[in-house]
Write a protein that binds this DNA or RNA. Structure first.
Length: 210
DNA sequence: GACCAGGCACATC
DNA sequence: GATGTGCATGGT
């Protein structure tokens, strides 16, 4: 009997408790973090965000004003700092030009259209776009990441190398389209991944939700 | 010192 | 369409 998505969620929630994601004081901080955390540990991203906060730059217009070189220096701890400085600026330009830097007007956009627009920004791929939609703008979009893939492959819920869209569809077609549910579910998968999967490669014999 | 982390774009076949 | 590679810091 295959583990159902709702059952898996209940077990994760009972075992780990609510995660209350995304860590961040504002929607804009979440957006910046979503780009900075690409293939990077969150601890390093926190250092980069702390640098931006210390310099009072965590606002769209202010962050876009500073030279790319300086931005790269500030986000250095997050790694890939040159490419991420470009990517952040690509996103900021989009935010400022299309929504005047106003997150509320961005949030008012039609979700599928906004997702397409985000994906058209160079440096924003499916996971970053969906993280922004779910965690910054409270849109019911499921975020698929490396942990999700790893866990679902190990539990034989997806095939190896399954496409992003395929995995996202699995969640969105089998779960209630609920922001809180999608938020907690993804956060719980990351928690499981960090606490167990990474420490017991390649197979986890002590998985708490098996 | 190796290995990895809450990806993505781009080149090449 | 699939596969390989560059991007980079900081923790284990």
């Amino acid at each position: 009997m295959k583990l159902g998505l709702n059952t898996l969620y209940r077990r994760l929630f009972v075992y780990f408790g609510p995660q209350h994601w995304w860590p961040g004081d504002s929607a804009f901080e979440v957006m910046v973090g979503a780009i900075l955390t690409q293939n990077t540990s969150w601890a390093n991203v926190e250092k980069a965000i702390a640098n931006l906060k210390r310099n009072r730059l965590l606002e769209p217009a202010k962050l876009y004003q500073i030279p790319q070189k300086r931005l790269a220096g500030l986000i250095r701890p997050a790694g890939y700092y040159n490419i991420k400085a470009k990517r952040l600026r690509n996103f900021l330009r989009f935010l400022l030009e299309d929504y005047k830097g106003n997150l509320s007007s961005m949030s008012a956009a039609d979700t599928p259209a906004l997702r397409q627009a985000l994906l058209a920004v160079n440096g924003i791929g499916p996971e970053t776009a969906d993280s922004i939609l779910l965690y910054a703008l409270d849109k019911p979009v499921f975020v698929v990441d490396a942990y999700t893939r790893r866990i679902f492959f190990r539990h034989r819920l997806i095939k190896e190398g399954a496409a992003y869209q395929e995995i996202q569809d699995l969640f969105m077609k089998n779960l209630k389209k609920d922001v809180e549910l999608f938020n907690e579910y993804h956060a719980l998968l990351v928690k499981l991944g960090k606490d167990f999967c990474l420490k017991t490669k390649p197979r986890c014999e002590i998985c708490p939700i098996k």
